[in-house]
Design a binder for these strands. Structure first.
Length: 987
RNA sequence: GCCCGGAUGGCGGAAUUGGUAGACGCGCUGGACUUAAAAUCCAGUUCCCAGUACUGGGAGUACGGGUUCGAUUCCCGUUCCGGGUACCA
């Protein structure tokens, strides 16, 4: 055998490496162990390098483990992290666990296993699964929100929030001590603070208050405050839920009914930050959709606060309206049934009617209200007086006016509001048209367009002008002022549950709350065995020894799960710091998250709340940036097929009924023959129907270009043998009939056709696919590349394994570029050809650009194209192949590490640098031009790259084929775009 | 209802600022290798029409219009699908 120059390398590598079999299991194990042992992904706060922070939303470690939907984002972020690391950045890429929360507590109630135990087990499982995927997390920086070393600082932050108030003049949070200072000197005079309700007090009055009185007043301003508020109470879960934990009047977790209940609760004053949360969105790179969701959630609307006098009463009725221009069309007023004036306004004559209505409203749940959407209400008997024209209008109560929005009262303008209109029609109230929309055909009542009429001084004005003029008049007459309203409500931050951070608050003998001193943090949970919340009381109420602390009484409410998760990205910067939540050095170096990846389900709440806490920490000088997350990527959800086996009745000719499993495509009445029973026809009735079939027993095939889901006979046998939860469930299902009306496939194997729907992957639907299983079969690299290859990462898609073989084949072909006959490395030092270098540099360019664009699926395609091309060229040049290894390392880290070492690399490929793209390798001598006639491409011609417009046109005109197409036609115009195309416009 | 996405072969999906639509992969068809199968490799594969073949013609990116020499890409309108949200004054 003749040795080529490059063969020296192969001999060296061989002695060190031996045969190189393509054994993905071996590679996975070998390198995962190596990385762990050598702490390859350890990140130090090395300020000599530029930083890059790639963060995944940390998971709640549930009992069912990861399914193939979870890693989609983890793989994407891992690719970015690895790419940046190779490119010379100091990359922070941590992972931790959002470990406080309801499920562990619910599990504890059901099984008696303490949440800390089940959490530890689940956390270990998650970590194992993530390591199996070859994710490059620095586990030394891992955090766990239920770890006292962590939640000490969650409590500390909330304590800081408690000790601050929001100064609207400075537009930032300031210490409560400064507020007290102001109150002592000036009272509320000159104070512009975010507050629960408007308060007026003089300095003298304030100074006369006792401790409790002061504390109560300060609660009106604190950013973490306690108040009676209507909360989403869920009886079944025994707890209060946040707005985003409630869907359609039911709890998101468990789907239990939720009712409104007044309770004394801790809240965070997020409303103080509404404007900044809104403005900050302009400075971050989030998707438009996500920004829109946040904007909607904050719900800013500009309008006017208008005071209406009430006939025969002292006080006024305040309303908020975005349409002050339509005030002349006000023909009635509506206040919320819970409005504080209801009782006072109700006349003797109307008392009965109002009471009946209040009873009716009280009976109706949030769910009823939303689902029925009925027009209901009752007249109080009182009248309000229109401040601009003195008209007297009746005051109603109706449930369509919400106590929590605006002032809980509206001026109803039936001519320009759908709900007011329906109400007016039902109750026979006058409708005065005040906006002429005839110039705007197709405009609806919601559109703020038209010309005012029947409106006194506003007549003839266009709506926007009229709004300004009306507001001005209202202000001038002292009847109200311009006002901005937000839909967002303060964040209820109390839970009457066990498994969360205790509020770091203690009460003294006078019931005055005090922040627990930092030296006394963390406030740990007491050991308990019964975690049930009884009658809405926190389980901690029963820990009487724990509650008494020195001379004080501990707060028994705990915090919601979001408490730990809204600042965790900061803790990763300095995870073991025992003196501070994060050191100034660490946070000044790492700054903020450069790329944040996670599910869209957290798009509103989690992101909004962590932005809130971040802005607060910015105000108190603890973080240098205004926003926590620079760029956000929401990965799509991977759905799973939910398949069903169909149960039917075989009615035999002798009139006997036999339950039998049938293919989903067999119609009722069809003839059937089942061995051992006989023949007859299929009957479907209420005893039959379909049963959930665990996905692991289902085979997906393609028949006549249609995908088909089948249950094969051997899968049924397997289910009988297997010791697995899914198998156990399936066995009980299969007991409902013993006979199967099998069909035969091409190979003569027996199967049943199943029906299928797409749905969320979940344990309960038996359709969760475990990534471990896929890794065992194809290796982690293949799984990673396959998930990326499925399509754009931000799009949802159903899980399907069809296609994974293609990725596996690709990896093998890639490997074969390096490893030849007899599993030996076959790479030479021969000089690379121009063509080979062009392939390489095309790939470098494409992969680098696409990683930056987070377009990972096209990266995988590019690798495939390059591999195919180089295979065709039988390329074995180190100069081409070695950079390829470094390029693929972020995607297929195990395979890349192996090949890189085999090529002589002494250090990890993951710090081996990123190949540099050189434009000169892509320069072409000739460019192929499409030649089109009237825009239709007919042929192609080659021209030198530097050819001018004129030469191209002349040469093209002279071409024989072109002549053929031009025959008998006049050339009107020739368009030549250099390096692109030629178009003949002919007539 | 409103807001945000989206719609491209049998399927997942590609396509720089408007410039050869369908890259790559799956599936399917045919072939090579094999005693056979698997694996692997090679070729073909948007649809329709014509042709013995090399091939030629037409249509085509949800639908209807428009701008342009030229539109998957830009504009207007419509339909359908996905996500979010809602008596928000």
């Amino acid at each position: 055998m003749h040795l080529r120059p490059g063969a020296m390398l192969y001999l060296c590598s061989l002695t060190k490496y031996g045969p190189m079999k393509f054994d993905v299991q071996h590679l996975d194990r070998k390198w995962q162990a190596y990385w762990k042992e050598h702490k390859t992904y350890r990140t130090l706060n090395d300020t000599s390098k530029p930083k890059y922070y790639v963060l995944d939303m940390f998971p709640y470690p549930s009992g069912s483990g990861l399914h193939v939907g979870h890693p989609l984002g983890y793989i994407g972020s891992d690719i970015v992290a690895r790419y940046r690391r190779q490119a010379g950045f100091n990359v922070l890429h941590p992972m931790g666990f959002d470990a406080f929360g309801l499920p562990a507590e619910q599990y504890a109630i059901d099984t008696g296993v303490h949440p800390s135990q089940s959490t530890a087990v689940n956390t270990a499982r998650y970590k194992e699964q993530m390591e199996r995927l070859g994710l490059s997390f620095d586990w030394d920086r891992s955090v766990n929100t239920s770890d006292p070393g962590y939640f000490k600082w969650t409590q500390w932050i909330i304590g800081e929030v408690f000790e601050h108030w929001y100064d609207r003049d400075a537009d930032k949070a300031r210490p409560v001590s400064e507020l007290i200072d102001h109150l002592e000197k000036h009272g509320t005079e000159g104070l512009h603070a975010a507050e629960t309700e408007p308060r007026r007090i003089s300095a003298e009055e304030f100074n006369r208050l006792d401790a409790k009185g002061r504390s109560d007043l300060l609660m009106n301003y604190r950013l973490a405050f306690r108040s009676v508020s209507y909360v989403n109470w869920c009886e079944a879960l025994g707890t209060v839920l946040a707005n985003d934990e409630v869907k359609d009047g039911r709890s998101e977790r468990g789907n239990h009914p939720v009712e409104q209940r007044p309770m004394l609760q801790w809240s965070l004053r997020i409303t103080a930050y509404a404007e900044r949360l809104l403005a900050g969105l302009d400075t971050v790179d989030y998707s438009e959709g996500l920004k829109a969701q946040q904007i909607n959630w904050i719900g800013k609307s500009t309008g006017a606060l208008v005071h209406f006098d009430i006939k025969g009463h002292e006080g006024q009725l305040d309303v908020f309206t975005t349409r002050p221009d339509t005030i002349f069309g006000t023909t009635f007023m509506v206040i919320a049934p819970e409005h504080e004036l209801v009782d006072r306004l109700t006349t003797q004559a109307q008392r009965g009617e109002i009471d009946d209505y209040l009873t009716y409203v009280g009976r109706r749940s949030e769910l009823d209200r939303m689902s029925e959407n009925r027009v209901t209400g009752a007249f109080t008997g009182a009248y309000a007086i229109n401040p601009l024209n003195g008209a007297e209008v009746p005051i109603y109560i109706a449930e369509y006016v919400l106590k929590d929005y605006g002032t809980g009262a509206i001026m109803a303008v039936p001519s320009d509001d759908d709900r007011d209109k329906r109400f007016a029609e039902k109750f026979g109230i006058e409708i005065i048209d005040v906006v002429d929309k005839s110039d705007y055909p197709g405009a609806t009542l919601k559109d703020k367009v038209g010309r005012l009429m029947n409106s006194g001084f506003l007549d003839g004005m266009e709506v926007p002008d009229a709004i300004a003029a009306a507001t001005e008049r209202i202000e001038a007459e002292g009847r109200g002022q311009r006002q901005i309203n937000y839909r967002i409500r303060d964040l209820v931050f109390s839970r009457q549950r066990y498994w969360g951070e205790p509020w770091p608050i203690e009460y003294d003998d006078e019931d005055v709350p005090h922040r627990v001193a930092t030296v006394d943090l963390p406030v740990e949970l007491p050991q308990m065995e019964d975690f049930r919340a009884v009658n809405g009381a926190s389980p901690l109420e029963r820990a009487t020894d724990w509650i008494r602390h020195d001379s004080r009484r501990r707060e028994t409410d705990t915090m919601p799960a979001t408490a730990g998760s809204n600042w965790y990205y900061l803790r990763y910067m300095d995870p073991t710091n025992a003196n501070e939540f994060v050191s100034p050095d660490a946070v000044n170096y790492w700054q903020d998250v450069d790329l944040y990846v996670g599910g869209a389900e957290h798009a509103v709440s989690h992101i909004l709340y962590s932005r809130l806490i971040h802005k607060f920490l910015f105000d108190i000088g603890k973080v240098p940036t205004r926003e926590p997350y620079k760029k956000l990527l929401n990965q799509g959800m991977i759905g799973g097929p939910i398949s069903y086996i169909h149960l039917g009745i075989l009615l035999t000719d002798d009139g006997q009924r036999h339950p039998v499993w049938v293919s989903s495509n067999v119609a009722e009445g069809s003839g059937l023959e089942v061995p051992g029973i006989g023949s007859g026809h299929l009957v479907l009735d209420e005893s039959t129907g379909r049963r959930l079939t665990p996905l692991r027993f289902v085979t997906e095939t393609s028949v006549n270009n249609e995908s088909s889901y089948r249950l094969y006979h051997d899968a049924v046998d397997e289910a009988q043998r297997l010791d697995h939860q899914d198998a156990a469930y399936f066995r009980t299902i299969l007991q409902q009939a013993t006979a199967f009306a099998w069909s035969l496939d091409k190979e003569g194997r027996q199967y049943l056709e199943l029906s299928v729907e797409q749905g969320k992957m979940s344990k309960r639907k038996y359709n969760a696919v475990n990534p471990d299983d896929i890794c065992e079969r194809y290796g982690a690299d293949c799984f990673r590349m396959y998930e990326m290859f499925l399509g754009p990462i931000d799009q949802g898609k159903p899980w399907s394994v069809s296609g994974i073989d293609g990725v596996y084949r690709f990896l093998r072909r890639f490997w074969t570029l390096f490893v030849g006959e007899g599993d030996r490395l076959a790479v030479t030092d021969a000089e690379a050809t121009r063509e080979e270098l062009k392939i390489l540099h095309t790939l470098i360019k494409k992969v680098t650009e696409d990683i930056e664009k987070l377009s990972f699926n096209t990266c995988v395609s590019a690798f495939m194209v390059a591999t195919n091309d180089l295979t065709k060229l039988r390329c074995d040049k180190r100069a081409v192949l070695e950079p390829m290894v470094r390029l693929i390392a972020p995607f297929a880290p195990h395979l890349a590490e192996e090949l890189y070492r085999a090529l002589g690399g002494t250090e990890t490929v993951h710090r081996a640098g990123w190949p540099t793209f050189e434009e000169r390798h892509l320069v072409e001598d000739n460019i192929t031009y499409p030649i089109a006639f009237n825009g239709k491409t007919r042929l192609t011609l080659e021209f030198p790259a530097e050819a001018t417009r004129e030469t191209i046109e002349e040469t093209a005109r002279a071409d024989a084929q072109v002549q053929g197409y031009l025959e008998g036609k006049a050339i009107r115009k020739v368009i030549v775009v250099p390096k692109r195309m030629v178009n003949f416009v002919v007539g």
